[in-house]
Design a protein around this nucleic acid. Structure first.
Length: 644
RNA sequence: GCCGUUGUGGCUCAGUGGUAGAGCACUUCCUUGGUAAGGAAGAGGUCGUGAGUUCAAUUCUCAUCAACGGCUCCA
């Protein structure tokens, strides 16, 4: 019997039923057959050796395809397991999936502690095994048979895995001496794997539960050619240079001190300047959108958080209350601004005419983060939220929510973030024990978010289990230099706190009604935002944000008096300017200013003094020629206004 | 909190069972130099902290603290 295979370009060719993907690839070209890793048949990725019995569309996956890489790395994980089993016969295996970049395998090595040396040995073993060109052979198995196989092997992890699988849907893969329970698919044989690097060892709780045993996780990456591994390593090097922790030190933005405490950043003058520019930028936008600034204290009575529900939820695992010496009254370091803002709402009777009431505060909060979680400025124990709470009538929620989306997108656009993900964070589907509030309110809130996002045309992903304990969120996620994802902006609908604080407003009908609260923070936290922004622009902040916008570079101290004069003029024009009056050559001064990524340098020498000018040099661009000081000021001002 | 790695002057890093070195930065002097490092001299560290082994520890062992890579967590 003959079947019709449709190719991506739309062409159709006849084949015998039962033909394999590989046969088809070979029929097209030998070159293709040498490169192809897997086949996507009717949209499903499968082994090349799998046969095709009916009409189908086919697409060959090569290294260049994301799904091809995925398969490649998954197969490498099996190769790793084979090497581990060869070197550590008692090892028991859990799972070994592919990642966005690379793969890992979780392994129980008993009490053995894996070392870096072991990784090198494993790499060598893997390379040796790969050279055997061992095919990945699939074998379907009955559940009973599979259980018997692993029981005999004494493999409790795989048995656990098996129990969750449906009979009739179980397959094994064997390459060389290693057989693993696996859904597949895999690349044709190990010979494709030419370059391997095992990158790190880590502990990982079995099934991600910290009550379970910790397995040894081996991370690695592999490529079809050494050249590509080298390129990848070079890319990693480059990413390291953008790391905000490194740049923060180099550009003197922030620092940490053990004497101050873990996760408590110290903002240095340059970092503080940057942060203030950002705050002013947002404050301006918020004033235009009808926000009202408020200020609340850094501590609050424990009862405030008992009322809000935060105490019950986080009290034990957070900084413990501080007490007044006489009365023994308990106060908490402010972990959230919302309860304070609720109290501000309650200071006066509110009419529907007052709503929406938008209270904004750059509020500094303190949260006890686990030691191992602290990370530069992205995860700290004291940070400042660009927080605001919008109190509105239920019928205003969606409109208000949409306005906030606009604000967040405006912020992102102004700062050059184009590569973000909008994530609708909803409750965990199975486990609802950690959430508070009525089912009805949750559904209304979820509905409001989903609709608002859709009406704004946002492309969103939905993440279950990522909601806050009191309500669903719309989170804006951005990746850092090393590819880690961070939540920046967030918008949350909250029906819960207004109830807990018994917030009301008088409606048109002269009756009391319950307002709805929207929490929102476009930056999220100033700390995290600046971290991600720093990595995003590799420390080259735009002129309007740069802590030092202009550096004056007099060629010799003969020109200092003139340069002093220029310095004064620029300062009077509100330009953030410094002068390098060191006894150094101009080349050295330029080098240092360039390394500090200062956007604009003004070189002043004999020529400039004579003409009443300064020679403009822009960061990374070189000499732009001499201009009068007035002209320079006007140009800088214009650039600041245009880009802000 | 858990697993693993690391911890040497302000920064980046070398090094040794017999109480330490380089480059940059810093200070002083010389130099007054035109678009990414001018020269010389000098100062600066009880080698994260505590205990143990040893005649002797920065070097070995243990503990502890912190940073880093993960896991778990994240109002």
């Amino acid at each position: 019997m003959s079947i019709h295979i449709t190719f991506p370009d739309g062409s159709v060719r006849p084949y015998e039923a039962g033909v394999s993907g590989w046969d088809i690839a070979k029929s097209l070209s030998e070159g293709l057959a040498r490169q192809v890793l897997a086949a996507k048949v009717n949209g499903v990725v499968q082994d090349l050796s799998a046969t095709i019995t009916t009409d189908a569309t086919i697409c060959f996956l090569k290294w260049e395809d994301a799904e091809g890489q995925n398969t490649f790395w998954h197969s490498t994980a099996h190769l790793l397991a084979e090497a581990v089993e060869a070197l550590f016969p008692d090892a028991q295996f859990w799972v070994g999936p592919a990642l966005e970049k690379g793969f890992y395998y979780d392994i129980d090595l008993g009490d053995y502690k894996l070392t870096e040396d072991d990784l090198r040995k494993l790499e060598m073993k893997m390379s040796a095994l790969a050279k055997n060109n061992a095919p990945f052979i699939r074998k379907a198995m009955q559940k009973e048979e599979a259980i018997a196989w692993f029981t005999e092997k004494g493999d409790r992890y795989k048995l656990d895995l098996l129990h969750g699988l449906e009979d009739g849907n179980i397959s094994f893969y064997t390459q060389g001496n290693f057989t693993d329970l696996c859904r597949g698919p895999h690349i044709p044989h190990t010979g494709f794997i030419k370059a391997i690097q095992l990158t790190s060892i880590a502990g990982a709780y079995w099934k991600g539960d910290e009550n379970n045993k910790q397995l040894t996780r081996i991370y690695g990456i592999s490529f079809p050619a050494q050249k590509e591994l080298d390129e990848y390593l070079a890319l990693l090097e480059d990413a390291k240079k953008r790391d905000h922790r490194k740049l923060g030190k180099e550009l003197e933005l922030f620092a940490f001190s053990e004497n101050v405490g873990l996760g408590l950043p110290l903002w240095l003058p340059k970092g503080a300047m940057l942060r203030e520019r950002l705050q002013q930028f947002l404050q301006k936008a918020q004033m235009e959108s009808g926000y009202l600034p408020v200020i609340t204290p850094n501590i609050g009575h424990k009862n405030l958080y008992v009322t809000s529900g935060h105490y019950e939820k986080y009290g034990k695992d957070s900084f413990q209350p501080i007490k007044t010496p006489q009365e023994g009254e308990e106060f908490l370091l402010k972990p959230m601004n919302c309860p304070h803002h609720c109290e501000i709402y309650k200071t006066a009777p509110r009419s529907y005419k007052d709503l929406p009431l938008r209270l904004a505060e750059f509020g500094t909060v303190y949260r006890y983060e686990q030691h191992g979680e602290l990370h530069g400025l992205t995860r700290v124990r004291g940070f400042t939220q660009d927080d605001a709470h919008l109190f509105c009538m239920p019928e205003q929620v969606k409109e208000e929510f949409k306005t906030v989306i606009d604000l967040v997108l405006y912020v992102f656009k102004s700062l050059g973030f184009t590569n973000y993900t909008a994530q609708i964070s909803l409750r965990n589907k199975e486990d609802r024990s950690k959430y508070i509030g009525s089912e009805e309110n949750w559904q209304r809130a979820e509905q409001a978010i989903i609709e608002a996002a859709a009406e704004k045309g946002l492309t969103t992903v939905t993440a279950y289990g990522e909601a806050a304990f009191y309500g669903p969120k719309l989170d804006f996620m951005v990746k850092d230099a090393i590819g880690r994802k961070w939540q920046l902006g967030t918008i949350q609908v909250d029906y819960n706190l207004p109830e807990r604080f018994d917030l009301t407003y008088i409606g048109e009908d002269n009756a009391r009604h319950r307002p709805v609260m929207i929490h929102r923070a476009p930056f999220g936290s100033m700390e995290r935002f600046i971290a991600v922004l720093t990595e995003h622009c590799a420390g080259k902040f735009p002129l309007w944000l740069a802590p030092v916008q202009v550096k004056l570079l007099p060629i010799s101290d003969r020109f200092l008096p003139y340069a002093q004069n220029v310095l004064l003029q620029l300062k009077k024009a509100d330009i953030r300017v410094e002068m390098d009056d060191r006894n150094e050559k101009i080349g050295k001064k330029i080098r240092d200013a360039e390394r500090m990524k200062i956007p604009c340098m003004l070189v002043i020498g004999e020529q400039e003094v004579a003409e009443g000018k300064a020679a403009v040099r822009r960061h990374g661009k070189g000499n732009m020629g001499a201009r009068s000081v007035e002209e320079i000021i006007a140009g800088l001002r214009q650039e600041v206004e245009e880009n802000q």
